[in-house]
Design a protein around this nucleic acid. Structure first.
Lengths: 199, 199
DNA sequence: CGCCGAGTTGAACTGAATCAAGAAACGTGG
DNA sequence: CCACGTTTCTTGATTCAGTTCAACTCGGCG
């Protein structure tokens, strides 16, 4: 199933042409290795124990990446929204079974490319490799900041931060997921919000 | 102050020759840009607000990287021991003021190279760039796993994990720092240890 | 209409933080 | 080598924020 340029979001095109700096030809070559895929709400894109064989551009929808502890509790590490890349980076890199679950919170449309194709293309197109590496560097910083946030801030401060930085997500995703992301229980989030709204 | 090959630890040499795969000539070129530096115990290698202009190989000693919250509380993100690279990656990358404090927990001996020199060398020596990028990728995974650990495990589980994975650090660094790393207060760590030793 | 999932609310509980005091270890200088 | 002061660790009493469990409300949907 060939992907046609006209069916691709402009954001995707610009991500690789403007941001990564690929030429038209390079972009077309890259695009020819992508496949469209759909993941309905509540379905898993990836489960712990599986190998992450592809890297995916999230064209529409949203996902959550989480772990499950021994008692069955879920702990969300991060969300992803349209325009983001998703996948289990570590498993993608090592091609060994991964640790994270990635589940669609809304119906998702993805553009996927296999790691073997991607690695081939990265060898052919140095700019693509640069871009990929820069992308990973940035997400590393994000993870570090998140770690610092979890360690230094109170639940209330974490909530207010999220509200300030990503107010739109409260329109889209259930509070229980936000609670898990903030590392508190739903009842605590509920009370916290009530407390704040009184003020 | 020229560094002589004979004065360099074998681990440092092997890091760049074996692990990064540099040739003898490449290694000598790289080495010529390094400088030795000492940071006594309790002194800071870097403070929040400063720009991280160098990347450093920790030849001896240990450091802690931490933030300080509004109330003055310190929160250790990670330790580093001999053989590790240290620095504020984000500030190094952007050349803007960083967020972290890096303090020597023991007297430290560093081998430093400026980011401008390093970037020049990376352009000349592709293998060096590869190595650096792979190094960052690995530390990204470590950070992700640490985030997951902080979120999913109880203080006791975090303590036992650390004890299992890095038992040696208990011989070297004060419990208060370990407490901060584990994200608990020193009295809690003390009680936790007592509880466990009774069993 | 009745079910189901999500969110809220209440009451009791719990585990870590806090504050403060004491003990032990360390290092430094006499 | 001891004595003193400082830092680190431990211990106790208390407080408190968040968890847990259960009941209840609300809205969507078959």
């Amino acid at each position: 199933m060939q992907l046609y340029r006209s069916e691709i979001s402009t954001h995707f095109v610009e991500l690789f042409t403007k941001s990564a700096g690929l030429s038209e030809q390079e972009f077309e070559l890259l695009l020819s290795h992508f496949q469209r895929e759909y993941v309905p709400r509540k379905y898993f894109y990836l489960k712990a124990g599986q190998v992450c064989t592809h890297t995916a551009y999230l064209n529409a929808g949203s996902t959550r990446t989480f772990t499950i502890d021994e008692k069955g509790g879920e702990h969300i590490l991060f969300f992803a929204f349209e325009g983001w890349m998703i996948g289990d980076l570590e498993s993608y890199h090592t091609q060994e079974p991964g640790k994270w679950y990635i589940q669609a919170m809304e119906d998702c449309e993805l553009l996927r490319i296999s790691s073997t194709d991607m690695k081939k293309l990265e060898a052919q197109i140095p700019k693509l490799k640069e871009w990929h590496s820069a992308k990973q560097t940035k997400s590393h910083f994000a993870t570090l900041n998140r770690l610092a946030e979890v360690k230094t801030l109170t639940p209330e401060e974490r909530y207010l931060n999220l509200l300030k930085q990503h107010p739109h997500i409260f329109q889209r995703i259930p509070l229980q997921f936000i609670a898990s992301y903030l590392d508190i229980e739903p009842p605590s989030l509920s009370r916290l919000r009530k407390r704040l709204s009184c003020k």
